[in-house]
Amino acid sequence: MSGNLVITIGRQCGSSGKIIGQKLAEEMGVKCYDKELLALAAKNSGLCEELFETHDEKPTNSFLYSLVMDTYSMGYTTSGYMDMPINHKIFLAQFDTIKQLADQESCVIVGRCADYALADYPKVVSVFITASDEDRIASLKKLYNVEEAKAKDIMVK
């Protein structure tokens, strides 16, 4: 484990968590990782980057999440890894990349379950950004240039 300070930011869709993370990283003089993590994880794992983008932060049911977390916490063997479904491999590759980043540098990580990946790291601050439904809808309307109904659809996905 490292002595690097890592701030993880979980957020509600439309709450401006990414913008807050970028501003925080800028103030701290460190990098902010969000979607950049997908490219790093793809490179480190040898899996196709498009797979990471396809599975990017898709909601998972608690059974799937617990299954992956159990596999991760118990360690995984090469043969076990080869037999895993692709979504498990992608999840584990992101976790490994997050841990490598935390070992290498201080940074801000937005999303990607970074708070779980770094739960045993001593110098991690995890925050969750939330906003009112009205503010989230307004943010999504502006970000995606869509009507309110479409913004609500995006918000609940």
Rank of each mutant, 00 (worst) to 15 (best):
M1W: 12
G3K: 13
I7D: 02
I9K: 06
I9V: 15
I9A: 10
R11G: 08
C13R: 15
C13V: 15
G14T: 10
S15E: 03
S15V: 02
S16T: 02
K18D: 05
G21D: 04
K23W: 04
K23H: 13
L24S: 14
A25C: 04
G29E: 13
G29D: 13
V30Q: 05
V30K: 08
D34C: 05
D34R: 01
E36M: 03
S45C: 08
S45N: 10
S45L: 09
L47C: 09
E50N: 08
F52G: 08
F52R: 05
E53A: 11
E53Q: 12
T54Y: 14
E57F: 07
K58D: 03
K58R: 14
K58L: 15
P59Y: 00
F63M: 12
Y65I: 08
Y72Q: 06
S73K: 15
M74E: 04
M74T: 05
G75T: 02
G75L: 09
Y76V: 15
G80K: 12
Y81R: 12
Y81V: 02
M82R: 13
M82E: 12
P85L: 05
K89M: 10
L92Y: 11
A93V: 09
F95V: 07
F95W: 13
T97W: 06
D103L: 00
Q104R: 12
Q104S: 10
C107S: 10
I109V: 11
I109D: 11
G111L: 08
R112C: 00
C113M: 11
A119G: 00
A119N: 06
D120V: 01
D120H: 14
P122Q: 14
K123C: 13
V125P: 01
V127D: 01
F128P: 01
I129V: 15
I129K: 03
T130V: 14
A131I: 04
A131K: 09
D133R: 07
D133E: 14
R136Q: 07
I137W: 09
A138M: 03
A138C: 02
L140V: 03
L140E: 04
L140R: 08
K141H: 04
K142H: 11
E147Q: 11
K150A: 11
A151Q: 01
D153Q: 13
I154S: 02
M155N: 10
